[in-house]
């Protein structure tokens, strides 16, 4: 059973529909016991960092999420759902993140005339597949282990992004893929049972469905 957390932060139906099309059993989780009774959790989310943390707190879900992760059960954070895994965000006025991953979430500077939000289809440079390049965050002082989400996903596949903030993990070994938008940022993070993707797999056509399938079959 995959619990999809519903905390009022945007559309959860696309994720549910995509997972169900892959044969997964899902439930919309609005309370802590829903999380406890599931073996996987998906935390979607669009909107503001503060609101997301506030809503999770109001619904009493933070403890259950942390317990789920601590118990080595699989977790997938999408977009804002990934960002709140970190300790803090430049977007937040008061809220702290879950702190599951060390590091912060930063805003794109817009330097060089780059438009912010970063919106549209961009490529994944996948650790273990992408050749090491100068200045690239991946394959640099890390063991190039392929993240299980990328089984049968070719390097440089296109996925859909829609965000103004990006994660900057302290520990580079959690970076499973990067994407270039003025800078190379961590577009996928992976630490044991915890996965986070900055793009929207549920909106990324075949590539996105493949990545979700890999999560379902973990």
């Amino acid at each position: 059973m995959i619990a999809i957390i519903d905390y009022g932060m945007g559309n959860i139906h696309s994720v549910k529909k995509a997972l169900e099309s892959l044969g997964a059993k899902t439930q919309i989780a609005q309370k802590a016991s829903d999380i406890a009774s599931s073996d996987k959790v998906v935390l979607p989310g669009v909107g503001a960092f503060d609101d997301a943390m506030l809503e999770l707190e109001k619904k009493g879900l933070i403890g259950a999420l942390l317990t789920h992760i601590k118990n080595k059960k699989y977790f997938l954070g999408i977009c804002l759902g990934m960002q709140i895994l970190f300790e803090e965000s430049q977007e937040a006025k008061k809220a702290k993140g879950l702190g599951v991953l060390k590091g912060s979430v930063k805003k794109f500077s817009g330097a060089g005339g780059l438009k912010v939000p970063h919106m549209g289809w961009n490529q994944l440079k996948i650790r273990g597949l992408s050749p090491t390049t100068e200045g690239n965050l991946i394959n640099k002082g890390t063991v190039p282990v392929l993240c299980p989400l990328f089984k049968d996903v070719p390097d440089e596949s296109y996925v859909y992004f829609c965000h103004s903030y990006y994660p900057a993990p302290e520990n580079k070994s959690v970076i499973a893929a990067t994407t270039e938008y003025g800078i190379n940022f961590a577009s996928v993070v992976w630490q044991g049972n915890v996965f986070g993707v900055q793009f929207h797999p549920e909106k990324s056509q075949d590539t996105g469905i493949r990545i979700l399938k890999n999560f379902v079959t973990l």
């Binding site: 945007g10 669009v46 909107g47 503001a48 609101d51 804002l80 939000p117 919106m119 829609c162 965000h163 103004s164």
Partner: peptide, 8 residues
């Protein structure tokens, strides 16, 4: 934008 995020 504040409520749902600029991106949408």
């Amino acid at each position: 934008a504040e409520k749902f995020g600029s991106q949408c």
